[in-house]
Simulated scan of single mutants.
Amino acid sequence: MRTVTRRGVLCRTCGLAVYRQMTSDTLLTGWWGLFSFFVTPFVVLGNAFGARAALHRLPEPYGAVRPPLHPGRRVLRRAPAMLILTPIALVALAIPTLVVVGLFSGGGEGSVALSAGDCVRNEADWPEQQLRKVDCGSPLAEYRVLEEASCGPRDYLLRAEYTIGAPGRPGFCVTPL
């Protein structure tokens, strides 16, 4: 990790060019170290507010021997910024997308709330439970849901996800039809 400071007599245009180039270099190479990985975002933000404010105090270019430096593209439109901002934007968009998909998917078949007397079919092999509620007259019905107090030694206890409801609600089991 290293810190670079450029000192000199600069006009506003040259100062802007130096600021943009150094910020782009920091965005490209500032991450390559364990400590630097965590410090770089603070350095970039500090420069964005501190050094950028100092640029406005610099004088406009006038009467110089050499022409002023060309400031080039804005920092956020340069390749190093895109290299950093693209994964951040993808993560930022992925989180709300996953939330929306989860809301519209309805939680899948395994999260259906059952009550005593319902008939179900297990789409997995026991002890795994992937229960689907079916009509009791259907040939697909394999088990009937009972309250836990009525469960026998050959019955299967249901996981909590199938007994969604009020606190204190009794657990359930299923018995073969």
Rank of each mutant, 00 (worst) to 15 (best):
M1K: 07
M1S: 13
T3S: 12
T3F: 14
T3C: 08
T5G: 10
R6F: 15
R7L: 14
G8H: 03
G8N: 04
L10I: 07
C11Q: 04
C11F: 03
T13D: 05
C14F: 03
G15M: 07
L16M: 12
A17R: 06
Y19E: 11
R20D: 08
M22N: 07
T23R: 06
S24M: 08
T26M: 11
L28A: 12
T29Y: 10
T29A: 11
G30Y: 05
W31M: 08
W31P: 10
W32D: 08
W32T: 10
L34Q: 06
S36V: 01
S36P: 01
F37H: 06
F38L: 14
V39P: 09
F42E: 04
F42R: 01
V44A: 11
G50Y: 15
A51R: 09
R52F: 13
A54C: 09
L55A: 01
R57D: 13
L58S: 02
L58E: 07
L58Q: 04
P59M: 09
P59Q: 06
P59S: 04
P59K: 05
E60W: 05
P61E: 01
Y62W: 13
Y62C: 12
G63K: 12
A64C: 15
V65H: 09
R66T: 14
P67R: 10
P67V: 03
G72V: 10
R74H: 13
R77V: 04
R77G: 15
P80L: 00
P80V: 00
A81D: 00
A81T: 02
A81H: 02
L90K: 02
L90V: 14
V91C: 10
V91S: 06
A92V: 15
L93F: 14
A94M: 13
I95L: 13
T97I: 12
L98S: 09
L98K: 01
V100A: 12
V101Q: 13
G102F: 06
G102M: 08
L103Q: 11
S105H: 13
G110Y: 02
S111G: 10
A113W: 02
L114N: 03
S115R: 15
A116Y: 04
D118G: 00
D118H: 10
C119V: 03
V120H: 07
V120K: 08
N122E: 02
E123P: 00
A124N: 03
D125C: 00
W126M: 07
W126C: 00
P127G: 02
Q129F: 01
Q130N: 14
L131Q: 03
K133R: 15
V134I: 09
V134R: 04
V134G: 02
D135T: 02
D135K: 05
C136Q: 06
P139F: 03
P139D: 14
R144E: 15
L146K: 10
L146P: 02
E147C: 01
E147Y: 11
E147L: 14
E148Y: 06
A149W: 06
C151E: 08
G152W: 07
G152D: 10
R154I: 14
D155W: 04
Y156I: 09
L157V: 09
L158Y: 00
L158C: 03
A160Q: 11
E161C: 00
Y162T: 00
T163H: 05
T163Y: 02
I164Y: 13
G165P: 12
A166Y: 11
A166R: 11
P167T: 05
G168L: 08
F172I: 01
C173R: 00
C173M: 05
V174W: 04
